[in-house]
Every structure is written in C-alpha cells, then in structure tokens.
Write a protein that binds this DNA or RNA. Structure first.
Lengths: 404, 404
DNA sequence: ACTAGTTTGTTGCCTTTGGCAACAAAAAGC
DNA sequence: GCTTTTTGTTGCCAAAGGCAACAAACTAGT
C-alpha cells in the first residue's frame, strides 16, 4: 500500500542519499539532481532539517570554482551532529567499538583486549555493553545514537548465534541479551563479521564500482559476504557467502575441526602454517613470520604460497562462476599473501573460466583491524538511508528509524 | 523522483499482483488485502479496466462457501482476453513458440523441427519470426500481444549473442534483428535458456516456496539460473549461474570442447555417455537408452551414474555454499538420472556442508520440452507485473508497458 | 557606480491521490 | 416484512508535487 505520504518518504530518502553520495549542494541543485521542483525540494529540506538530518552550511563558502552567475545557493549538507552510528565487534581476543557520524565517517574508536574463552556469553556481553556506554560518553554533542550493530564471528539466524566456533558459543540469544542492556529505543542489529566487512568495503570505495561484490575473509576459518548494489545478499537462511565450504580438492590441511576438501582447510591460517611447517618452515611461525619470510623470498614460504595460491584460485573460480561478481576482495590476516601469487591466480582464473566469461577483478582489502566494527556502523547507517518497504505503507510523516 | 501519480502506479501494480496471485475477488476484499480504502480500490479497478487488464466476472457465482451475510461483491479478475505473452525458444533442433494469457496460463504452442547448423543466423531468425506470426494468427480475440521473449542457449550481453556454442553463433545482434522483424511497439526480451527455465519454475510452483532458488540445466553443456524473490539474479555481466564452470575435479570426460575439471565435463550428456561406454555400455547409446538401462538396473549404467552423482553432489555443495538457496532444481535431459542417486547425493551434501548449514532441497524439474519457451512468456509477464523504477519517475498515468 | 541579466528560495494556487463518512443497493437472518 | 450487514459509489478533506510569480542576491558589463 502506498499513500500520498509515501511519496514524501521516498523523495526524502532519495534526497538524503544524494547529499550523502555527492556531498552538500543547494536546494536548487538537489532538485535538479532528483528531477524535483525547487519548491518541492525546499519543502523536503525543511522536513529533513526538523529531523536533524541535514543542516544549512553555516559559513557559505565563497569560491565557486566555475564562477556561476546569479544568486548563490545555500549549501545543504548532512548534519554532522545529527546523530551517531555505533559498530561493535566481539572478536576472539578483542572488543572494538567504532562510532561514525551521519556521513559514516569514523569519529571515535575504542578497543580493549578480551578473552572470550575465559568467560560466559553473559559476561562477555556485559563487558561489551559497558565498553559501548563508556565510548558514548562525552560525544553527546554529536547527536543521539541512531543505531547499534554488534558484529561477531558466527553463523547467525535472526539475532541468535547458532554457532561461533572461535568463541565457543552455541545457540546464544545475543539479540535479546543486547536489548536488555541497551536503551529501549535504540535499533540493534547483529551481523556476521565477513558480512560486515563486505559492507564496510562498499562504504570505503564510496563509488560502488560494481553491482555485485564478493568479500572473502581468510583467517583461521574462511568466511565471506556478498553485496548486491551495496546491500547484503543473505540467501534463505542468511548463510550465503560461506565460501569456506567450497570444495577445492579432496584433502587439505585442517586441524581436525575443518572438513577435508574445504577451501578453509586449504587456505585458512592453520592450513597455511601447517603446510609451511611441513615444507621446512619454523615450528611455531606466526602468519606475520610467514609473510616476512615470503617478502624475503625464503624457499619454504615460496613453495607454501604457491600451493596456497592454487587452492585460492580454484575457490575464486567457483565464486565467479556462480555469482559473476565484478570484484572479489580478499581480507583477513592471511590475505596479504595474495600479492605473491596474484599473477598466477589471475592466470589460473582466466584459464579455468570460459573465454567469453569475464573474470572478476581481485583486490586486497584496505580495511584495518577495526574494519568489522566499522562495517557494523555502516550497516546501521545503511539501514537509515535505505527505503524501508514497511514505511511506505505508513502515513506517518516522521522519518526517524523504526525500532529494531 | 516520485510524484502523486507514482502512488497510483505502485498501488495498481500491487492490486494486479494480488489478483494474479490470489485469484479473483471483490473490490472490498482487494482493498482489505492491500490495506487500501474501498473507494480507492474502486478507483484503481476503474483504471485497470480501462487498460483491459482486469474485468468484472460476468456471471457472479452464487455459492459463497462460508455463507457471508451482506451484499455480495462483484468478483474482479485478471482479464483473460486482456492480452497475450509470447515466449519463443530457438533450440538446436527445434523452434518452439508458447503463448500465454494474462494469467500466464499456456493457451497455445507450436513447435517445428529446425536445423540451426544448416543456416545463417538471419535465416534462423526469419524462420522464427514467421513461426511467431503464424502462431499469433487466429488468437486476436485474446487481446494484443503484450511482449515477446526469445530464448536461446547462449551467453548473452544486452541483446547480443556473445557465444552460442551449440548453434555456432558468435556476436550476433539478435535484439536488433528481431526488432526489425516484429511490430515496432512490441516489447522484446532475449534470455538465456537456463534463466528462462528458472523463471518458469517459479511460475509453476506459484507458491514461490523459497526466496532463493537455483536451477541447474544439464544437457550437453551445463548451465544454470538463479532467482531471488522470483526474479533473475544476473551478476554484473549477466553471467551469474554459469554452473557448468564449477570445478569439481581435475579431469572429466569432455569431448575437447569442455574444459577439464569443469562440472560440465563430469555431468554433461557427452561426459555421461562417454563414461557409460567406457564402463561397457553400448557404443551409440542415447541418454534415453542410458536411463532405460538404469531403470533396469544394468551394471554399467549403475556404475556410471554413481560417478555422475558424486560429481553432481560436489557441484551442488558449491552452489549451496555460495548462495544458500532454499531449493535447487535439476532440469534438462540428463536430470532424470538424479532419481537413482538422490539419497547418495543428499548424504554427500550433508556430510560436506557444516552441520549448522541447512542443505537446500533438491528437486527434479517438472517442465516439459516447452519449458524454456514457457519461461520466456513468464519473463514478459513478470516484466509487466513488476514495478518499473523508471515508471515511478513519470507522471504518465497510462499503465501500458514501456517499449523494449 | 549603476544597470541588466541570472539564479535562488519562497509563496500561493492547481492537480492528483488516498482516506473518511454518508448513502443507496443487495443480500442473509429472523 | 423488518433488521442487520456488506458492497460499491460519491462528495469532501488533507497531503504531496508542479507551476508561475516574486523578492533577494549575486555577476557582468558599461
């Protein structure tokens, strides 16, 4: 169902996105960009200002690079103090909170060491909640929190942690636990780490160069996320993009927890280091040691990375064949090894794919260790800037977020 | 940009879809289903009747099963004579045309033998065009043609046939050729056969039981199509779902054209029959012969299908891991072999996928040899019943299709 | 310095759309 | 036959966008 009010909602969201994407501009320019009348645009801006979503740029900057004739417009921009978005990552050994402003620029981060194995889920969530609260203190001037997204390395199903191998959690009602501990009107999302990173990447390269992008996260385990038009593709149960389960052979080097044949057991950290040892690498080498050895051209590392690259290429071919993405981004602590096999991997992909089939571009993630938490903030931001089908059906003119 | 007229467009499309999905009903019932006022619903129906899209059911049927008190409503339904949709398949050895009514029910089909190898693309398209024209004769009483979709076993890119191995076509501007030969105002689509079959399946089981469905087409080559919410997922270049390129091993039984390791070279018809011969099957066995031998429990066939099933299972695992579909449908002339390995395949999938990962349901396609052409008709139908973003931006109140 | 020309933001009026209330019509139940 | 219930239609209202007009603010040229 749509009502005359739905039109305003749709146009307001479009206006907000145009300002987010293309930066501040005058009402007249915005109207032209959206194909709306100046008067209509003016009304929309009035509404958005009432919601503290946009603001008139105080000191109108005087240098119009191509000198434009006529009365200069008042620049409208996303209100930097219109609110904040909070992303929080609950990792195996670290809690990280990232706060972004309305432009989704990071304005604050906190990170503390953490030992998931040593405490119950309840205690972990308590610690996370107090870290979030502590982080929010002192930035009340940036406006109200518009939402929170907790990111966790786990298979999720509707706010419930089905299985978090690295944390040792099973069937934990994380959503309900967070709801109890946070303000009642705060929208709360929960997301898988690979998915959050995938969204973070589309926010980084704001250009959104490709409609379909796959993100491959290579740590101990191997996960992934798929974005279509910048939004997550989740599959029926939310498990799409679990690339670790791709079959790339019959064996693998998993340490028992991983299934033989899985991409995970070929290119994951455990597998890589296991094979490294086998080839003569030091017994207790870390991934950083391995990468250093690679840069120095050590033989054991070179041999190891070559096998690693072949398995990776096979996995990437599978992803390309199914999704036809424009870009595949590699992330996680193991991903930097790709530099040393890039040419080989690309050659393999072009060989294995049909000649008429365009192979995707492969890139390394440029996100740092806060990437997942930042992705969480992006997800809440995205939610606010996206059209909510349910809102179209309402005659409610308020543009505020729905409760989670 | 949205205007007050966009609201009418959105609501009219919703009404049309409700009538298509749930069958005829009164204005009052429709209004309740959509959450719209009775008066608004009445206005929308007036508009739709003017477009010959819906009609008042002539003889109001008198048996209200749960006897309802009050004035009985006039049943509104999709106008069966409101127009026709044409799907046409250009196969290797057959031309098929299927015509459906506004409810997307097949009302006519024609199929003639054809020899693609023996003639130029121009001649082939000529023959197809005259078959379509001949089919349309004599059904003018069903209303105007609302669109045509030509289905072809090829890699397509924006109306251009990039590569049709089985037809021997390369870089043929099929779209332009059809445009020349058909009425200027007829919307024309061109689609890959596997994609058309995928859409046909979602139209068959109108229930649309799952949001994400993968269709695997197993003929000589192996292709596929992916639907999300009933609509095709195409990837950046329109090549998503090219499952034939999945890597399931190192060898395979391709006849030179197929690449080693590809799913295609393991489970395609050529590969299957090649392996069948190797295991002692008759030298010139057809796929039908093979399936008969299977039903009769012949040893060579049983051994062959067992290997075939293992490769298939590996391919299905890849699809499940990437897409997390609720259902994978197997189609094509080789698909019936699945019955003999169903249990084994499902066991393998459950073994290879993580326990928390829900394996998709696997089913055999129930579409007959006209399935692809029918899918073409479905695609045009779907196009008319879907919201066109471009239309929202227009203040044009007419609901007719855009030119292709 | 001054005028002409251009662009901006706002205001009033019109059209389209959906919601609401009222009404006659048509059926069931008593 | 009368009451009750439901349907489809008809005015009237509010909300939204388009259009035209206007004052304001700035550039360019004289």
């Amino acid at each position: 169902m749509a009502t005359p009010q739905s039109v305003r909602y749709l146009n307001a969201i479009s206006a907000l996105n145009a300002l987010f994407r293309d930066g501040g501009m005058s009402r007249a320019d915005l109207g032209r960009a959206l194909g709306l009348n100046r008067s209509t645009t003016g009304n929309i801006i009035t509404d958005l200002m009432a919601e503290r979503l946009v603001i008139e740029h105080a000191a109108a900057p005087r240098p119009p690079d191509p000198p434009r004739v006529g009365r200069p417009g008042i620049v409208i921009e996303i209100d930097p103090a219109g609110g904040i978005f909070i992303g929080a990552e609950l990792g195996v050994d670290r809690l990280t909170v990232v706060v972004t402003d309305m432009m989704c620029h990071q304005i604050l981060r906190r990170s503390v060491p953490f030992d998931a194995a040593g405490r119950s889920p309840e205690m972990s969530v308590d610690q996370m909640a107090s870290l979030i609260r502590a982080t929010m203190e002192g930035i009340a001037d940036r406006g109200p929190p518009r939402g929170l997204c907790v990111v966790i390395p786990a298979l999720l199903e509707g706010g419930i942690v089905r299985n978090a191998l690295t944390l040792g959690w099973r069937d934990v009602s994380l959503g309900a636990m967070l709801r109890e501990r946070m303000a009642a009107d705060l929208p709360i999302l929960i997301e898988n780490d690979a998915n959050a990173l995938a969204v973070a990447e589309t926010y980084r390269g704001t250009s959104q160069r490709f409609d379909v992008v796959a993100f491959l996260l290579i740590e101990n385990g191997v996960g992934g996320g798929i974005t279509v038009g910048g939004r997550l593709f989740r599959g029926v149960h939310g498990f799409a993009g679990e690339f670790g389960q791709l079959l790339v052979g019959k064996g693998g080097y998993g340490g028992g927890r991983q299934k033989p044949g899985h991409l995970e057991s070929y290119i994951g950290k455990d597998a890589l280091l296991g094979r490294y040892r086998e080839k003569g690498g030091p017994a207790n080498a870390t991934i950083e040691d391995f990468l250093t050895a690679l840069r120095r051209g050590k033989r054991a590392a070179r041999q190891t990375v070559s096998v690693w690259g072949r398995a990776l290429a096979r996995g990437l071919v599978q992803i390309a064949a199914v999704l036809n993405p424009g870009l595949i981004i590699l992330g996680g602590s193991v991903a930097p090894a790709f530099r040393h096999v890039a040419k080989e991997v690309e050659r393999t992909m072009n060989r294995e794919l049909l000649e008429t089939f365009p192979a995707p571009q492969i890139e390394l993630s440029t996100l740092g260790p806060d990437g997942a938490a930042f992705g969480g903030a992006c997800l809440v931001h995205q939610r606010m800037f996206s059209i909510d089908e349910r809102r179209i059906a309402q005659a409610d003119p308020a543009l505020t977020l729905l409760p989670a």
